[in-house]
Nucleic acid binder design. Structure first.
Lengths: 247, 247
DNA sequence: TAACAATATTATGTATACAATTTGGCGTTA
DNA sequence: TAACGCCAAATTGTATACATAATATTGTTA
């Protein structure tokens, strides 16, 4: 029987538990700092303790939970943490963009990322902004690959893991449609500039554009935060941000 | 009985297995790409499969092993990977230094890092360069804390995990003592400049100095690589670097 | 002889019983 | 009454048996 996907990555207990636990945490199902008890957690997720512990180790690596003596607690994030995470993603993406620009690049290396650019142009032109988030993620993924180094690509993926740090975080806000469309247009301008800079070997420009591009994410989070202050649990990506600073 | 350290972090099976397995891998005990079988590995490390699997998950996070279908293989690194890892550390440390400079800094925040500076000055003046590596690590740790954000501090630590990426990698080379001492003197100049830049709020300078400081690591690795080409297994930090590019 | 498929073997994935440690509470004592 | 230490309960750490999936091998067929 031709089962396309290998079992390990999709339907294993570890993977199921990881996915469900991750989305529960991101959704703010537990207040920051909550202790996660293995036995009741395993029961409610319908897995045994062994795959649950694997999932917890993975989530520790992703930064969503942290050890506290024995066992794990849900990690708490301050709004400053969110800014720092976005800043870091921008800095690392900038490094990748610079390295991509500084190495000899063939025309064919840029064909697929240019196709994504065209698609995003169309999405914005048609006001079909629902499809934007996915295409934006693809663009950033392609960008990460242009430097031609797996280690760097992995670090970019890692820097995009936290829910408020991802390139497409907050890209579906419906509160202020005109501000949001402006953000899309400016962001796409950054995208075009990035590809052009890489094509021309302009490393410093590519770096600067990637960093400035990440600033859009900060602006988005800031708006979302100001609009929902005192009620941030309503915003999916802000659910696990506590108003106070964490120690 | 006053056991100072908590058991979990030092004498647990997981921790023991992790430490031993890590040092075996770093020492190049297995050729890159080797499959790590759980049962024989567990036997040779005198732990059961459960803590071994925890250790493997941790090592995957550290980047030393990677999944390959079922189970893990020893990750292979190219010399370019080493350069990228150092570059990344420099970039992230640079971001931390910049943020430290850009935030209001009290005099007292800098007292402990300045003490480290004085100690390193003494070590270099006395030619007691054996103590340099440890003090250098402390300096970089203090630097990571000056930005005042745990998330950033964690990322710096992470970027310093790979054996060739650590701040003090190659800092005990005995092949070319005079070149090495030059490297120390220049590096310490960077250290002084970094603290001064942070003190004066010169963010761009702090960033640039941290990046340039990391370049010393690249230079060291390059020398070690050139000297031992075809025989890199002799150099501890280069043991798991394959001459060829990895796919 | 080469390629495919069935099967046997070996590996990892999972569940659970047990051990060791942590944690909270209670009682005693200064 | 507060603090210390001890004890008990609960929780995580570890080992191992079993289930399931991956891999190698062997036989058959074109």
């Amino acid at each position: 029987m031709p089962s396309k996907a290998n079992n390990k990555n999709n339907s294993s207990q570890t993977e199921r538990g990881l996915r469900e636990l991750r989305s529960l945490i991101i959704a703010g199902h537990w207040p920051a700092g909550s202790k996660l008890r293995e036995v009741p957690l395993a029961q409610s997720l319908n897995v045994s303790r062994t795959p649950l512990r694997s999932a917890l180790l993975k989530l520790e690596q992703e930064g969503l939970v942290e050890r506290a003596g024995a066992g794990y607690t849900v990690r708490s994030f301050s709004i400053e943490d969110a800014y720092v995470a976005i800043e870091l993603r921008g800095v690392i993406e900038g490094t990748a963009a610079r390295m991509a620009a500084e190495k000899p690049t063939q025309q064919q290396d840029l064909t697929s990322i240019k196709e994504v650019l065209v698609k995003i142009d169309a999405v914005i032109h048609n006001d079909a902004i629902d499809g934007y988030a996915e295409l934006n993620d693809v663009f950033h993924q392609q960008l990460a690959e242009l430097a031609g180094n797996d280690l760097l690509k992995n670090e970019i993926e890692r820097a995009s893991l936290l829910p408020f740090a991802a390139p497409s975080a907050f890209s579906s806000s419906k509160d202020d449609r005109s501000r949001f469309k402006t953000s899309l247009i400016v962001g796409q301008q950054h995208h075009h500039g990035l590809v052009q800079a890489i094509e021309r070997g302009e490393g410093a420009r590519a770096d600067a554009l990637a960093r400035e591009h990440a600033q859009l994410g900060k602006a988005n989070i800031e708006v979302a935060y100001q609009e929902h202050v005192g009620n941030i649990r309503r915003v999916p990506q802000l659910a696990l941000i506590t108003a106070e600073l964490n120690t």
